[in-house]
Design a binder for these strands. Structure first.
Length: 871
RNA sequence: GGGCGGUUAGCUCAGUUGGUAGAGCACCGGCUUUACACGCCGGCUGCCACAGGUUCGAGUCCUGUACCGCCCACCA
């Protein structure tokens, strides 16, 4: 096709559809109108027939459904949607599923309260169970499968509300591919991946000290920790040196753990304590003989330089305990209460067992906090507390969802090997394309700070069970080494109700029989498989081949250490590959006072309220104004600006389409200049969007559009009504229609509703399936090349017009005031452009006489017509 | 303690290879102009955190400092 032909075709296609512009265009109701149409026409349906190279696949973050969606979700999901819409218009088949994270603790808590039930995994499944209408006083125990059914029932309701919000926001998701982290497919993939890792020795079970939440009574992983500043106090406590006179003093914030003390420790180079290494001391109150040992982790600067090692007060204790081969004296139970101890028995030897028992009996059954208060009194009474406790605030480790500090409890847990893969995982991080790039540092930080393998087991109920049974020995104990595993074809299974091959239900939990693994996997152990879940790994190889590895993982920066890292780990272990090419990291929404917006603070503004007040396009405008990775203030003002932009698009389009004929070849300099400017905007916008730089595209498109409205439109208004004859009117119309078409498509990823509305006035099909604009298409309408002279002419005319408006404004005269004489002083090169724009300029500025004079810089002298003579 | 961002107009932020500081909001003034009063036109506002350095020239590059925010850390 020659350029000439393409020009003609382009012009024909500009008006190939009857133009029908409403009299009073408005934004109200556009969401409902177009959502229904998009759904009916399956505009966002993924085309799974295209090859991988023509697919753009997105690994959507599944929001937690038991919480509520907030503006932060709207913010980051809009970013993703802008990219999705851009890629779709570029001709990609966009694989954009939505998921719900319904698996996990938050859902459990809601279901317990909502239905008045309690999960008892020892119960068999009751298919006929119906929850009471109202929750009763005492929770009804139900089996794990029944409990999970209730979770599914409740989350289904939440998911409907979420979907409604997402649709209203205009997310171009293919809703036929929605998944949930607790659905059968997710469970199957999660269990399948687990079994494969187990088979390769990449996951293992171990009984070891583990971080433990005493309220939830479950193990937690390093990634779920957070530090909180807590008030505490240094207690200076003295230990008698065994077999001779003298005392050693230590500082401790946890004096209640003195009964669990197994050693004291000081730095090997600390001259104060060198002589004591190898000797024993006697613990106060309990009279236990413990050694004084050297270790480099002991800090001479802290406290007295001697630390008390307990089993277990913190993670350093675990390190010391392991490296110094110390015994265990555990006193805190899984519920956080002090266990009963019989002093004098093996492991609890004391120089005065009855005195120890006396002290300890006052502590047994207490929580750590209460025990601390009690033991301080005991220490004070015995004279072993030196001075008063010195109040301090210090950072204490908490489970991020927990209310009490974590304890360390010895238990049997499943781990995924991570420590030995740190180097290759760092390399994966370097191969991943981060947006913005500095986010990679957080990933590396996390890996470099890893303290141990990933604990994936949780002592909870609503989650994916471990697909494992164990043989039960003749004595009734469980043989954890004798695992019974299901065939992959049976997955998903629940070992609390399903039975291993070759056994019957009667053999459950009886000697010689079997026992199911009681634990479930951590949420992240499943959600780290979202790429595998959405692409239907090991279920639909054809689909998998078309979408995996995926193109984009969008998410927020707070879950780099969990979701992102875990997903990279799983893909590395399973496929020896990255799960995606790009990671686009959104920032957070901050309160106007720059603090992180928190749900607990009671942000009463729900996303739906925002969408209704400002329109979806307005809210999307605000969200898309923030660059990737930038924390952004919540700003309704920006939403109003976005809404205004959408209204402006309606009105400007109405004007352009009000008299679209005659249309023809774009010949006038300023028309060609406009298209040239727009062509370079399109070219740069395409490049920016390819690099996830959507905020810049929106900003620049908006600026151009405003220039188009304020200056260009005003300059060509008269001409396009025919003031200068049909050919020049045709040129103006050609440029207006061409520019409008491109601008609408430029805005379409950001403002999907208003652009679709305007598109429907004069074009067939959905704008969201239209081709992304190109510089070539714009330039072919104006000839075949860029026209920098046209750009200069347009800018020159706009500058003169501004000067004339300024004069009218200064004189406080109406803009329709005529200009008797305008003297344009400018460099010769500029003046040479004047003939090209003179007639447009005089029409737009109501200039009666135009004179010129050469000058170094542009300057316009304006003499307004007298009030009487201006009509 | 380690790391990463940030510091530009009253507010929110742009500023792409270094070349005489920008936008929007807010504020002030004006205007019904045949798309838009959910509008239009115009105006005001800055030792670009601070101190050095490189350069003919630094908001931009280098070094250091301060403050803000975040991530991480074995915090007795």
């Amino acid at each position: 096709m020659t350029n000439q032909q393409s020009t003609i075709n382009n012009q024909q296609s500009l008006l190939s559809h009857p133009v029908a512009v409403p009299d009073k265009p408005a934004l109200e109701g556009l969401e409902q109108k177009w959502l229904a149409k998009w759904e009916a026409d399956r505009v966002y349906r993924f085309d799974r027939t295209v090859p991988r190279s023509d697919v753009f696949s997105i690994d959507t973050p599944p929001p937690t459904v038991s919480g509520s969606l907030h503006v932060g979700h709207v913010f980051s999901f809009t970013h993703t949607d802008v990219i999705a819409r851009f890629q779709r218009m570029r001709g990609k088949a966009v694989f954009y599923p939505m998921g719900w994270d319904d698996n996990g603790l938050p859902t459990e808590r809601r279901v317990q309260n909502y239905f008045g039930v309690r999960c008892d995994p020892s119960l068999p499944y009751d298919p006929s169970f119906v929850p009471p209408d109202k929750p009763g006083k005492h929770p009804i125990p139900v089996s794990r499968p029944n409990f999970i059914e209730l979770c599914a029932r409740l989350t289904a309701e939440d998911e409907k509300a979420f979907e409604h919000l997402w649709r209203h926001l205009g997310l171009s998701v293919d809703w036929s591919m929605t998944y949930a982290t607790i659905d059968r497919r997710s469970q199957r993939i999660s269990q399948l991946s687990f079994l494969r890792l187990l088979d390769r020795g990449l996951t293992y079970q171990l009984e070891a000290p583990t971080l433990w939440d005493v309220d939830f009574r479950t193990a937690v992983a390093q990634a779920e920790l957070e530090d909180r500043e807590q008030p505490g106090a240094y207690h200076r406590v003295r230990f008698a040196i065994a077999d001779r006179d003298g005392h050693l003093t230590i500082d401790t914030t946890r004096p209640e753990l003195i009964p669990a003390c197994v050693a004291l420790v000081a730095h090997p180079d600390d001259d104060r304590y060198k002589p004591l290494f190898g000797t024993d001391v006697i613990t106060p109150l309990f009279g236990v003989r413990v050694p004084v040992r050297p270790h480099t982790l002991a800090d001479p600067e802290k406290g007295t330089g001697v630390a008390m090692i307990c089993t277990f007060g913190d993670v350093t204790d675990v390190t010391w305990w392991r490296e110094l081969s110390l015994p265990v004296r555990a006193i805190i139970q899984s519920n956080g209460a002090f266990r009963a101890v019989r002093w004098g028995e093996r492991g609890w030897e004391s120089v005065d067992a009855s005195r120890a028992q006396g002290h300890y009996d006052e502590l047994a059954g207490l929580s750590a906090v209460k025990a601390r208060a009690r033991i301080v009194e005991q220490l004070r009474a015995s004279g072993d507390l030196i001075g008063d406790p010195k109040p301090i605030t210090h950072a204490v480790k908490f489970y991020e969802k927990g209310d009490r500090p974590l304890e360390i409890v010895t238990s049997r847990q499943w781990f995924v090997k991570t420590m030995e893969f740190r180097e290759p995982l760092l390399a994966r991080g370097r191969a991943l394309q981060w947006h913005p790039p500095f986010m990679q540092a957080r990933y590396e930080n996390w890996i470099n700070g890893l303290a141990g393998d990933w604990c994936i087991s949780r002592q909870r109920f609503f989650g994916v069970p471990f697909p494992v049974w164990y043989e039960v020995r003749a004595d009734g104990s469980i043989d954890y080494d004798a695992r019974l595993l299901p065939d992959e074809q049976r997955l998903p299974i629940d070992p609390s109700t399903d039975v291993p091959n070759g056994y019957t239900e009667e053999q459950r939990n009886v000697p010689g029989g079997f026992a199911g693994d009681p634990d479930i996997m951590d949420t992240w152990a499943t959600s780290s498989l979202t790429p595998q879940i959405v692409s239907r790994w090991e279920e639909d190889p054809d689909l998998f081949g078309r979408v995996f590895p995926m193109d984009l993982r969008p998410q927020a920066h707070d879950i780099i250490r969990t979701w992102l890292f875990d997903t990279v780990l799983r893909a590395h272990l399973e496929f020896n590959a990255l799960p995606w090419k790009h990671a686009a990291i959104s920032g957070w929404i901050l309160d106007p006072d720059r603090k992180k917006m928190s749900k607990s603070k009671g942000n009463v503004i729900t996303p739906m309220t925002l969408l209704e007040e400002h329109g979806s396009d307005g809210v999307r405008y605000w969200a898309a104004s923030a660059r990737m990775g930038t924390d952004t203030a919540f700003d309704p003002g920006q939403m109003r600006v976005g809404r205004r932009l959408a209204i402006k698009l309606l009105n400007a389009s109405r004007f352009v389409l009000a008299k679209p004929e005659p249309t023809g070849r774009v010949t006038s300099a300023i028309d060609r200049g406009l298209l040239t400017m727009l062509a370079s905007l399109v070219r740069e916008s395409t490049r920016d969007l390819d690099e996830f730089n959507y905020a810049r595209v929106l900003e620049r498109s908006e600026a151009f559009f405003w220039f188009f409205c304020d200056d260009y439109l005003e300059l060509v208004k008269g001409r396009r009504y025919g003031d200068q004859g049909p050919d020049l009117a045709a040129s103006a119309n050609g440029a207006l229609l061409t520019a409008l078409s491109s601008m609408l498509r430029l805005f379409a990823p950001f403002l999907p509703f208003v652009t679709e509305e305007v598109w429907s006035w004069w074009r067939a099909g959905s704008i969201h399936q239209a081709e992304w604009p190109s510089a070539e298409e714009l330039l072919s309408a104006g000839g075949t090349s860029e026209d920098p002279r046209g750009v200069d002419a347009l800018n020159f005319a706009a500058a003169v017009l501004t000067a004339i408006r300024k004069k009218k404004s200064e004189e406080q005269r109406p803009l329709k005031t005529a200009v008797a004489v305008a003297v344009v002083q400018a460099p010769a090169a500029m003046l040479a452009l004047l003939p090209e724009v003179e007639r447009d300029l005089c029409a737009a500025g109501l200039i009666q006489r135009l004179e010129t004079a050469e000058a170094d810089a542009l300057q316009v002298r304006v003499d307004l017509a007298s009030p009487e003579s201006s009509a």
